[in-house]
């Protein structure tokens, strides 16, 4: 099940930079690795060399009793100090390049961390979506990061550093994505039971594709066609799903769960936990606590065909 799921994903280590921000950090990281390796090698060589050369030979006189040496001690302070100063200035420059002051720039996207899903709002549009976050390529984007309950943290390694989402605070992050693709990330501040399944997918699209997506997303929900799905839509409103979930264009306007308006067009569900297909959806609706223990969605006692109806409905919400 999961094997299939991640095939189309870009590798996402901190060295696979796909944004100038991440690239700058990578540059600094590599510089650091070189310097650190030099120091480590020095220490390893000194340690082994001294250990071997000065190992005790039996019946030996006490060696010469040396208690110190000023010159050497100066070197011990001087060389590390020089290195450290160098890296201090390198990191200041990188910090200012990666995370410059926001000025009066207003955010292009507002992402809110919830236990355990991401809500994304696109200012200037009517779009609210969840979990799979679409962003355009080549544009310098200012993200505003918030939290609804506890602290979460936004991290997509290929796109640059992380930023905490703290209740009661607005944090900001700049990102410019180089090339289209799907970028994996994860919530990086421990946020309770399902912190593990609070993964991030950023879908980066060319400006054209992105505009198309915006247009599709701004539209209301797909109106169910067949009877099964229509039954599902009714069930959705009746069984209080609507008190937590929003499906734009219907009476469902809940805000405590992920927006489901275009749920059917997401590849994954439950923040990257599994592929979005009818089997998984059925399992989820049968017993959320079985699938994602602790998730803030109650268990409803549904008959088999209710589940089938709900599944059909949700899958059509493209």
């Amino acid at each position: 099940m999961t094997g299939q799921l991640f095939l189309n994903i870009n590798p996402s280590s901190i060295f696979d930079a796909a944004s100038p921000q991440a690239a700058r950090i990578r540059h600094l990281t590599i510089e650091f690795i070189i310097a650190a390796s030099a120091i480590l090698i020095l220490v390893v060589i000194l340690t082994s060399f001294i250990s071997i050369k000065y190992r005790s030979k039996r019946q030996q006189e006490d060696p010469k009793q040396i208690t110190g040496n000023r010159t050497l001690e100066m070197w011990m302070v001087g060389v590390p100090l020089a290195l450290v100063i160098l890296f201090f200035f390198r990191s200041l420059a990188t910090m200012n390049a990666v995370l410059p002051d926001r000025g009066n720039h207003s955010p292009d996207i507002i992402i809110t961390g919830h236990q355990w899903f991401w809500e994304a709002v696109y200012p200037g549009t009517t779009i609210t979506t969840a979990n799979e976050i679409h962003l355009p390529v080549g544009k310098r984007i200012l993200m505003q990061l918030n939290a609804a309950d506890v602290i979460h943290d936004w991290w997509v390694p290929a796109l640059g550093g992380k930023m905490d989402m703290i209740p009661g605070m607005n944090n900001y992050l700049w990102v410019t994505i180089d090339r289209p693709g799907i970028y994996e990330g994860a919530c990086s501040e421990f946020c309770g039971q399902q912190h593990a399944w609070m993964r991030i997918r950023v879908v980066a699209e060319s400006p054209g594709d992105y505009t198309l997506w915006l247009r599709r997303e701004a539209a209301g929900a797909h109106v169910p066609q067949d009877t099964l799905a229509r039954a599902g839509a009714v069930l959705f409103l009746e069984s209080t799903c609507s008190s937590c979930h929003r499906v734009k264009g219907t009476a469902a306007a809940g805000l405590t769960g992920p927006d489901l308006t275009h749920f059917g067009s997401r590849q994954t569900m439950l923040t990257g936990m599994m592929a979005n297909d009818s089997v998984n959806l059925g399992r989820w609706l049968t017993d959320p606590q079985q699938v994602k223990p602790g998730a803030h969605m109650p268990r409803f006692i549904f008959a088999k065909d209710s589940i089938r109806a709900l599944t059909a409905y949700l899958e059509q919400l493209k």
Partner: peptide, 24 residues
């Protein structure tokens, strides 16, 4: 040797941008 490894990774966090990537 081991502590130098640990200390150097500590230094890498002190370089803020690297910490932004690697914290947590």
């Amino acid at each position: 040797i081991e502590f130098t490894i640990g200390g150097l990774s500590g230094i890498s966090f002190a370089i803020v941008p690297i910490d932004w990537q690697l914290t947590d």
